[in-house]
Computed example of a mutant assay.
Amino acid sequence: MTVAAKCPASVATFRSEHGFSITVARLRGLLADKGMTIFVDIDQADAAAQVGMTLRPTRLIVFGNPKGGTPVMQANPASGLLLPLKALVWEDEARVTWLAIEDITSALVDGYGLDASVVEPLAKARALIQMAAARDPA
């Protein structure tokens, strides 16, 4: 049995029902469908190859929606250290694809002193990551 990489409790990890490339495409499509902006899509395996190293397929997708993030940063500019949101897609040694996203809402409320109602829209991103991993309904 393949298991996800060890992560802190704030990181939600999902095993994808799809291969790596399809998972990345599904995630990008879902983000676009929900009006999210993909600010950058970093191919970390390619970056490793550029310095003569190897890394299994790994992509970091940085995304968000200014309608959700701007009020957070207006309330506390330092919260911009956690924004925009990030999703990681990687393939493990058994060729199983995983997705992960960090739930930053607790950190924003507890650590940055923000009202939960301001950060609540950001919590919806977790469901999008989970949807990208899921098998399509029959």
Rank of each mutant, 00 (worst) to 15 (best):
S79Q: 04
S79G: 06
S79A: 14
S79N: 03
S79M: 04
G80M: 05
G80R: 05
G80I: 06
G80C: 08
L81M: 15
L81A: 15
L81C: 12
L81I: 15
L81G: 11
L81F: 15
L81D: 08
L82H: 03
L82N: 00
L82T: 00
L82Y: 02
L82V: 04
L83N: 00
L83R: 01
L83E: 02
L83K: 02
L83Q: 01
L83V: 03
L83W: 02
L83I: 04
L83S: 03
P84G: 09
P84A: 07
P84E: 04
P84Q: 05
L85I: 09
L85V: 09
L85H: 06
L85Y: 03
K86N: 08
K86H: 06
K86G: 01
K86P: 04
K86E: 05
K86Q: 12
A87K: 03
A87Q: 02
L88E: 00
L88I: 07
L88A: 06
V89L: 09
V89C: 10
V89M: 06
V89I: 15
V89H: 03
V89G: 04
W90I: 04
W90P: 00
W90L: 09
W90K: 03
E91D: 13
E91F: 13
E91L: 15
E91V: 13
D92F: 11
D92K: 09
D92P: 05
E93C: 09
E93T: 15
E93P: 08
R95D: 13
R95H: 13
R95C: 09
V96C: 14
V96A: 13
V96G: 07
V96P: 05
V96F: 12
V96M: 12
T97K: 06
T97R: 07
T97W: 08
T97H: 08
T97F: 08
W98V: 00
W98Y: 06
W98I: 01
L99Y: 09
L99G: 03
A100M: 12
A100C: 12
A100H: 07
A100F: 08
A100L: 10
I101D: 02
I101V: 14
I101W: 00
E102S: 13
E102L: 12
D103C: 10
D103Q: 12
D103V: 09
D103F: 07
I104S: 04
I104T: 07
I104M: 09
I104K: 02
I104Y: 02
T105E: 05
T105N: 06
T105P: 07
T105G: 05
S106C: 01
S106M: 12
S106W: 00
S106Q: 14
S106I: 09
S106R: 13
S106Y: 01
A107V: 15
A107L: 15
A107C: 12
A107G: 15
A107P: 00
L108Q: 01
L108P: 03
L108C: 08
V109T: 11
V109G: 05
V109W: 04
V109M: 11
V109S: 06
V109A: 10
V109Y: 05
D110E: 15
D110K: 13
D110L: 14
G111L: 11
G111K: 09
G111P: 02
G111A: 12
Y112I: 01
Y112M: 11
Y112R: 00
G113T: 06
G113I: 10
G113C: 11
G113N: 10
G113D: 10
G113H: 09
D115H: 14
D115A: 14
D115Q: 14
D115P: 11
D115Y: 11
